[in-house]
Design a protein around this nucleic acid. Sequence first.
DNA 1: ACAGGTGTAAAACGATCGTTTTACACTGCG
DNA 2: CGCAGTGTAAAACGATCGTTTTACACCTGT
Lengths: 175, 175
Amino acid sequence: MDIKNKILCVAERVFDQEGFNATGMGRLIRETGLSSRTVYKHVGSKNALMALVLKERQQRFFKSMDFSTLETLFDALHAWSAKDGMRGCLYFRVGAETSGNIPEIHTAVEAYHIQLVKALTDLIHREAGQPDELMTEQLLVLLEGAVTASTYRGATAIEAARLSARRLLQPEAEL
Amino acid sequence: MDIKNKILCVAERVFDQEGFNATGMGRLIRETGLSSRTVYKHVGSKNALMALVLKERQQRFFKSMDFSTLETLFDALHAWSAKDGMRGCLYFRVGAETSGNIPEIHTAVEAYHIQLVKALTDLIHREAGQPDELMTEQLLVLLEGAVTASTYRGATAIEAARLSARRLLQPEAEL
DNA sequence: ACAGGTGTAAAACGATCGTTTTACACTGCG
DNA sequence: CGCAGTGTAAAACGATCGTTTTACACCTGT
């Protein structure tokens, strides 16, 4: 079980840093220090490995994010980005690189999106006192924007998103 | 000159639909109907072709976007997304796929970002009556978020971003 | 008519891809 | 002891990658 985890760990790091298609299995084999035979015995194939990485990361991500309130959410996002580096959403990236052609990967990306939308829906429900689809969508846009923009604007983008998100909960002042 | 444009046109479409690394030169050669020799004579190399696509697209993008006001901007973004399809920002994607390792591509991505930030800075200056870095950053986040989120939420994400952007210009109502 | 440029068709280049195979060593368990 | 399982090391698989080359056909202008 430790071997599989080592493969997943190295693969996630290299996939994230270099891109999925740009990363050959040879690189992962070299960097894990394992033989190709062992790697393939444990993860099956590159596509399966990619899907495994996405699934494992999803669990870790949602364990790390604190969806209690808007503030805790942006705190957690800030911390995650600082530790993980800011290279944009891995799920969007793998989706773009594979364009939905690999079923196991497409499924993993979809699962992540579903859980994300659900977490935000619940958060908004809690903070606004009632469900609000528009507000949820706006928060989703702010999160995706913060993650994407932070790749070239830095953590500033996350704080800008946080400020915008605060406004979401304030009632509209009509003229 | 027409040949080069045909190559650029096909390349942009396939790169966008399938991803950069997932697209081989063979596919582009087949789909342009040209010989490999002609293709390489006109564009030099795959990396050079990618950079050319990005540069040409940048001109077309900023010609198509109307940065006059927030509303015209989101109208234009909506129209662009409807016509082009919603697969996320090509500049972010190429940056992630190449991780900044190819100078000509990294330069093209940077140039796009610079022009984008400048356009938004000017727009905010105009609409708010004075420069506002925070507001610019917030609008940038909304745009990036709209483009990214629309890949799996559809045009709804763009309209949600539009509504958030409107609020940016409204003065804060303090308690 | 001939030279130069521009195109095609197709083979070939070495490199690298994902994956499988062969051969061998070590371990723990019956 | 012996056998099954799990690991390494390294070669080999066919496919495909980006790119170059060879050979040939077609214009165009002096």
